[in-house]
């Protein structure tokens, strides 16, 4: 067990927590939050594996991938939130399935 492994493990924990919340939550804001947590987990794993030789400079390729990934996930977050606001304005809904109906829907 060394430092990169430790962070990589944190990354997969975050990913699993994110995927869990993404599927069982209904509120759209919560799902977008969960998506971001999933993303953080993946990025943490990528950066951790780039840093596997202690002392040496880390591998720059995963860093570049993570920078790209962050921008992509921000684009999705922003577009998703705008769409959510529009849906709320138009239909009054904040979830694809009515949250009053059941707590454990399985939209995904």
């Amino acid at each position: 067990m060394n430092q990169p492994t430790w962070y990589a493990l944190t990354g997969v924990i975050l990913f699993s927590m994110g995927i869990h919340a993404f599927v069982i939550r209904t509120h759209l804001v919560r799902r977008i939050l969960a998506f971001n947590i999933m993303g953080s987990g993946v990025f943490l794993l990528l950066v951790a594996i780039a840093h596997r030789i202690p002392g040496a400079a880390p591998d720059p390729v995963p860093h570049a991938l993570v920078l790209t990934g962050i921008v992509v996930s921000v684009s999705f977050t922003a577009f998703g939130l705008v769409l959510l606001k529009k849906i709320y304005a138009k239909t009054g809904k904040t979830a694809l399935i009515d949250p009053t109906e059941s707590t454990s829907d399985q939209t995904n």
């Binding site: 804001v29 962050i70 921008v71 921000v74």
Partner: peptide, 22 residues
């Protein structure tokens, strides 16, 4: 993890921007 570029991007884009939008 010695990734200062990503730290900058995370603070500015992810935490800052996503935070404001959320």
């Amino acid at each position: 993890l010695r990734a200062p570029d990503i730290a900058l991007a995370e603070a500015a884009i992810s935490a800052g921007l996503s935070g404001v939008l959320l």
